[in-house]
């Protein structure tokens, strides 16, 4: 008799708490390792752009000079490939899903001023060294290249 098969379940349901949650009041609980959204600890980022190149959707933008990392959360498919690819391991997959919104917008993370200043310093240093090396090369080449230039003409 198939009719009474659900009697135990029906009785249970009578005394059970509702399976649903009162959502905005009661926050959902996600298990650890749930792929919700990508976050970055931006100060460790070296702006290499690996994540932006790896992203299957092209949702990421990295600006080395401005020190920013931009994500279009509405394009992000939360696959976690950028997290895998990051050489500094400064990208993380966090719990909690992307909330809906009235319009598509991007979220930009900027490095803190100290880090930016330090990077700027480094870049200047590198540029100075490069310029010095170039000058030295030019000076060295200047002596030798004259015959070569004449040949070219």
């Amino acid at each position: 008799m198939a009719l009474m098969k659900y009697a135990p379940q029906a009785l249970k349901n009578l005394f059970m708490k509702p399976a649903t949650k009162k959502y905005p009041l009661e926050k959902p609980v996600y298990p650890d390792g749930s792929r919700g959204h990508v976050t970055i600890s931006i100060d460790e980022c070296i702006s290499c752009g690996m994540c932006a190149r790896a992203c299957p959707n092209g949702a990421l933008k990295v600006d080395r000079n401005a020190g920013t990392w931009t994500i279009d959360r509405f394009d992000c498919i939360a696959c976690g490939y950028c997290v895998l690819k990051c050489p500094k391991k400064c990208l993380f997959m966090e719990k909690g899903y992307q909330t809906p919104g009235p319009e598509k917008k991007e979220e930009t993370f900027t490095k803190s001023p100290e880090v930016l200043a330090a990077e700027e310093e480094k870049r200047k240093e590198a540029a100075r060294k490069a310029a010095e090396a170039k000058a030295a090369m030019a000076a060295k080449a200047a002596g030798e290249s004259k015959p070569a230039e004449e040949k070219k003409d």
Binding site: P31, R35, I77, G80
Partner: peptide
């Protein structure tokens, strides 16, 4: 589905293969 999310991180799309 809860098991999916617990083990792979996504309820439907696993993204664990490479």
């Amino acid at each position: 589905l809860d098991l999916h999310e617990l083990t792979a991180g996504g309820r439907l799309i696993f993204s664990v293969n490479k």
